[in-house]
Nucleic acid binder design. Structure first.
Length: 431
DNA sequence: TCTGGGGTCCTAGGACCC
DNA sequence: TCTGGGGTCCTAGGACCC
């Protein structure tokens, strides 16, 4: 049995954590540069704010309903996520953190008669200790656990609920009923492209989907579609992976708030981004063997694009080494075909763990203590306190537009919330 | 005026090898 | 008239996810 613990409207809930006055106020959270809506509270959903819509398109609606707007505050969300996962980990031995707001939990470590009790308790304790509301879905496979969670969130099939926020699909009858209730496009792993294909064949619900033959599924979908089909029938096809291997790639990508034409300014941005990118590699404890830079201009299909790759003889995450590589790549791209740059993407592939480093025969090992020191200083005194080759003013460009960012309540001493207890105190002292 | 950022896996087709 | 058979590796693009 697998449980999926999923935080409800995670970013919006994080913003509410330190603003209890907003508990019933509609909230939206915006993407980088305050571009799109990436999270909505229930109230905002009810007001008809779609997911992923450009902010300017709903600005009028936001004003009319006095929706509270936040720029994304990943420092805060990352820390709250860590707390949620920690609480789950304290109570369940096998946890696979799937995303910032979701975790799969192996419930087969508990005996069958306490699954329900455990799920309800888990939900309650996350609320008590962290203050984030979650939904828990239980099923025999990851895909069924997802499905159960979906039922809770969409308020469908209350007969499968156990208290608010927990649903269990355990018997065959439960499963069939759940599959009949859910549209095939709402199944985890079946996206927009497949829905059209399925509907033209008269397949609308998840139950219709599992009625198809194995051959037919294999013929019209890739192996991933077939696995979903199997999972919905209770066969494990997606392994439970509590300790995920090192990632395949690490990407750092930013849209610029304005289109840049000057080579000097583009180089500057690349320099700034390289430092954050290298920091990200170190944080993930990997060295890159291959790095690439993509500069793109404009939106839509017909935008210019320049790409360069570099293979590193000795895999690295050292800012100084990466700066040289990215500066060279940037110069090459810009010299071949200059165009207005609207987006910069840095990527690393062929990653190796920092636990092992393959050295070149003729090169001395890198001195890591300097980078460690750099990271410690920047962590303590704020990002960009110590930099390579750019001024503090330039470094500020990094975050683009963030007009509505909340304080980093839990990770910056200077932004700790202040609680005024003077009134309470005076009452006590009078007594 | 204004449109995010970060991932995974799979497949087809080309280049190349013996 | 008639032109093999079996591989590997790489890349781009599609599909999907949060």
């Amino acid at each position: 049995m697998i449980a999926l613990v999923d935080c409800n409207n995670f970013y919006a809930s994080c913003e509410r954590l330190f603003r209890p006055d907003l508990r019933h106020t509609p909230i939206i959270v915006l993407s980088n540069n305050d571009g799109c809506v990436v999270a909505r509270s229930d109230e905002s959903k009810a007001l008809g704010i779609p997911m992923g819509v450009p902010f300017f398109e709903v600005r009028e609606l936001v004003g009319r309903h006095q929706i509270e707007v936040f720029s994304s505050n990943y420092t805060l969300y990352g820390d709250i996520s860590r707390r949620v996962m920690e609480v789950i980990g304290e109570r369940c031995p096998e946890v696979e953190v799937y995303s910032i707001d979701e975790a799969f939990v192996d419930f087969s470590v508990f005996s069958g008669d306490i699954w329900e009790e455990k799920a309800i308790e888990l939900r309650q304790v996350i609320w008590d200790k962290v203050g984030i509301p979650v939904s828990v879905g239980l099923g025999q496979t990851k895909t069924l656990a997802k499905l159960a969670n979906h039922l809770v969130k969409k308020r469908k099939l209350p007969q499968l609920w156990l208290g608010q926020g927990v649903a269990v699909i355990s018997t065959v009858q439960d499963r069939h009923e759940a599959l009949r209730t859910v549209q095939v496009g709402d199944v985890w792993g079946i996206g927009r492209a497949s829905v059209g294909k399925l509907q033209s064949e008269g397949i609308h619900t998840a139950f219709d989907f599992i009625q198809c033959s194995s051959q037919w599924i294999r013929q019209y979908f890739t192996i991933t579609g077939w696995r979903t089909w199997r999972e919905l029938q209770g066969h494990h096809e997606l392994p439970f992976n509590p300790a995920p291997p090192i990632p395949q790639s690490v990407v750092f990508s930013r849209s610029l708030s304005e289109c840049l034409w000057s080579s000097k300014r583009i180089q500057q941005r690349v320099k700034i981004f390289t430092q954050s990118f290298a920091e990200k590699l170190r944080h993930k404890q990997v060295y890159a063997s291959q790095v690439s830079l993509v500069l793109s201009g404009g939106y839509g299909e017909r935008h210019n694009l320049g790409k360069r790759n570099r293979h590193l003889l000795v895999p690295s995450n050292d800012t100084r080494i990466l700066l040289v590589e990215f500066e060279q790549m940037c110069t090459e791209i810009l010299s071949s075909n200059p165009f207005g740059v609207h987006r910069v993407t840095l990527a690393a592939t062929e990653l190796v763990s920092t636990n092992v480093q393959q050295l070149s025969l003729f090169q001395a090992p890198t001195n890591h203590s300097i980078m460690q020191l750099l990271d410690r200083i920047n962590q303590k005194f704020g990002r960009g306190t110590m930099r390579v080759g750019v001024t503090p003013k330039e470094m500020k460009h990094l975050h683009g537009r963030q007009r509505f960012r909340s304080p980093r309540y839990t990770t910056r001493w200077s932004e700790l919330p202040v609680v005024d207890i003077s009134k309470r105190y005076s009452v006590l002292s009078e007594k």
